[in-house]
Nucleic acid binder design. Structure first.
Lengths: 99, 99
DNA sequence: ATTTATGGTAGCAAAAATGCGTCCAAATAA
DNA sequence: TTATTTGGACGCATTTTTGCTACCATAAAT
């Protein structure tokens, strides 16, 4: 159990319920992560982005710092101004049709 | 101004602020739409899906019927059980780096 | 040294989503 | 017909996000 990945696999095997929480946290930080990256690429400050979205600076700061999990509505406002697109894809694993 | 598309283009030109709201509403209904489709493909009822997600039936019903806009956390719980994947892509238009 | 921009945090009220239970109309199966 | 299932709606209390304002430490520019 040396690496973070090892730990995740361990938890995934031992406690599937907690594994879901880990997956969710990773998915969120992945989405918020690309959001931050993209903002940097566009040379925008948190305040710039907030102004474009019509949001207060604090909202953007809270989301980027992980203090709050955004509403889909808020997330889309931000994505729009960043030129990002939120796409729903069919995953490669899990979930088979029930007969 | 015969079709819905015509109307959108009209608004987009006349009032860019409202256009943003329309875009956002479309993005949401697109995401929720694939969510509903996917649930049907898997032959799951709203109650089935809710149980898998550890959510009450009312939450799923409210989101699918457009009575509430889901939190990113809730959305990911549902996507996970549906075998869907929420991906952040760089859009094809808009948003250029500011110098 | 002084101003300015930035990311982060804090408190607070308002708005919204959530969880929980219940109920209902319509469709479906028995 | 009688059950059962399904999607949807309602109220209510709780939790969470949001909007707003203000503040702070740091870094950068002047």
């Amino acid at each position: 159990m040396a690496t973070w990945t090892d730990y995740k696999n361990h938890v995934r095997a031992e406690n599937p319920e907690i594994a879901k929480d880990i997956d969710e946290a990773e998915a969120i930080s992945q989405i918020v992560g690309t959001m931050i990256e993209r903002r940097h690429d566009l040379n925008l400050s948190q305040r710039d982005l907030a102004a474009l979205c019509g949001l207060p600076h604090s909202s953007v700061a809270r989301i980027e710092s992980g203090k709050s999990i955004p509403n889909l509505s808020t997330l889309l406002k931000i994505f729009r101004e960043l030129g990002l697109c939120l796409v729903a894809e069919i995953g490669h694993e899990k979930a088979q049709p029930r007969i």
